[in-house]
Amino acid sequence: MRTHRPTLVLAVLLLLLANGCRDREVTAYRVPKEKEAPPPMAAAAPSGGLPADHPPVGGAAPGAPAGAPATMANTAVPTASGAGLSWTAPASWTPKAASAMRRGSFAVKRDGGEADLSITAFPGDTGGLHPNLNRWRSQVGLPAASPTELDAALQHLDGQGLHFDVIELVGTANGAPSRMLGAITTHGGNSWFFKLLGPDALVAAEKPAFLAFLQTVKAP
């Protein structure tokens, strides 16, 4: 029996190693429905995530949290560069993390519902006003509209040295009645998009706050 021991040891080790080298498989499971999670990129910690004096831990980038949001923390996305805009949000809005594609992000909560406010900026006119308005229409399940119809639906708002084209769209998103308030302005050769999207009643109730928020947006 003695001579079989090395073979046995070898076999056990190979089995262990084979176990370790197995590929990840396609799996299926059932989980209780989650409450509507915030968009992954919006969940990231703000730039400088940790307190300035937080000890570096785990070798991860300071300010890059460990989960999903960390994934784009440092990759180069061609968003607008140059001086940004600044704003003052209502106290009831919860700041969420900015990300590579978002310059600002807020959770707007009311009566148990939640809407998402995103602020993005891109170089140039990003295809022009009307295509962007139609892109927003498609996000709430509305068909594309003609330039004349779009112009008629636009509201114009002058803030602190900035002019906003504001549109309000009612439709469905993710199978639920939804409303979108969108505003577009240009600054320094970049297009800035402010979009509040969420449950119909919530966004309707938040409209005054959204318009007041736009009034606080200013160039440095």
Binding site: D23, R24, V26, A28, Y29, R30, V31, P32, K33, E34
Partner: peptide
């Protein structure tokens, strides 16, 4: 389903190999 989500997950290794998945 109003209560549950039925999830099928495909690892990125399979995506990287362009495997067709029929579950």
């Amino acid at each position: 389903d109003a209560q549950f989500d039925d999830v099928v997950v495909i690892p990125d290794t399979k995506l990287a190999r362009s495997e067709t998945v029929q579950h």
